[in-house]
């Protein structure tokens, strides 16, 4: 009897709790519905369609309807091995990444340290100035750089000639220089990364520097033994975004090199190759394979970063 008296309220409590939770869950799902619809409609469905299309010979010049395409099995995947441009295009993307990711880390960090310096007068002014290129639309920025790096009338080459370099680089006409020229554009607009690193620098406890100063550490020692480890999570974040961004690099390359990836396909980045196949040549099936490939490669690269490189990151709160 006693036991029964106790057990009834407990069951009631369980019932009430689960009803409340159900109601909460329903409301939660209701609030999430717009995102879920968006996710299914604009992300999951296109991904599934891409996988589906990769097994067909669908072209963009016909209505997407049964009868207008055939299933071709793994033919589109097999074509990867005979595609003359796939490997070079991936090479262009990797070359850009190998130059751009270190630059995209070192230069913003350099700027961040500069504008974080207590010796700098009007630091806010300089912070704004360095950040300004970031707010310029990428198309406009690329237009500007197209002019700045013109081999005949660009101010960079005019300056190089003025200091005695008779044959300065033909930036966007020479296959050797085209990718580094785009890397320069990336550096110019690295204000965003600078801002994030600046925030990280300002979050490093000053006591650490004071203690190091008492111990006789110089500025370089403090930078490499305190600053870098303390901001390493942010550096890791920037590197990860840089890797993903490098594999998706498209707009400036297309604006400068056109859909041919000129000069001599040296700007034929992998996403540009994908775009050409899909929208220039209307090979939607094969283009889907390329899209999936770059997705997989990006995932692997990101996974590599998280698996190996993240071990080098110091999380102060994780001890």
């Amino acid at each position: 009897m006693f036991t029964r008296v106790i057990s009834i309220p407990h069951q009631l409590q369980q019932v009430r709790t689960s009803a409340l939770r159900r109601r909460e869950a329903i409301w939660g799902f209701l609030f999430l519905t717009p995102w879920i619809i968006g996710f299914f409609g604009f992300q999951l469905l296109p991904i599934l369609m891409t996988i589906f299309l990769s097994f067909t010979d669908y072209t963009g010049t016909k209505e997407f309807a049964p009868g207008n395409f055939n299933f071709v099995g793994l033919d589109n995947y097999a074509r990867l091995f005979s595609d003359l441009y796939a490997v070079p295009a991936m090479g262009v993307t990797l070359k850009f990444a190998l130059i751009g990711i270190p630059l995209g880390l070192v230069v913003p960090l350099y700027f961040a340290v500069l504008v974080n310096s207590r010796y700098l007068i009007a630091s806010n002014f300089f912070r704004t100035l360095f950040f300004m290129p970031t707010v310029i639309p990428i198309v406009a920025g690329t237009i500007i750089f197209g002019g700045v790096l013109n081999a005949q009338s660009g101010w960079i080459n005019l300056s190089l000639k003025a200091i005695g370099i008779e044959d300065p680089p033909r930036w966007f006409s020479d296959p050797f220089w085209a990718v580094p020229a785009l890397n320069l554009l990336g550096v110019w607009s690295s204000g965003n990364a600078m801002l994030i690193l600046l925030a990280a620098l300002q979050g490093v406890p000053t006591e650490l520097y004071e203690a190091a100063t008492v111990d006789g550490a110089n500025a370089i020692t403090k930078f490499f033994n305190i600053t870098v480890p303390m901001i390493s999570p942010v550096i890791f974040y920037n590197v990860t975004l840089g890797v993903i961004g490098a594999f998706q690099y498209f707009v400036p390359a297309m604006l400068i090199g056109g859909l041919n990836g000129d000069p001599q396909r040296s700007l034929l980045f992998f996403p540009l190759h994908f775009y050409r196949e899909a929208f220039s040549f209307s090979e939607m099936g094969y283009a889907s394979v390329l899209a999936l490939l770059i997705f997989v490669v990006t995932m692997i690269a990101t996974g590599f970063l998280f698996f190996f490189v993240q071990r080098l990151v110091y999380y102060a709160g994780a001890d």
Partner: peptide, 15 residues
């Protein structure tokens, strides 16, 4: 460098 780049005459996007 920033100022000069910013002031430079733009080239055609589609050169």
């Amino acid at each position: 460098a920033l100022l000069v780049v910013g002031c430079a005459a733009p080239a055609p996007t589609v050169p």
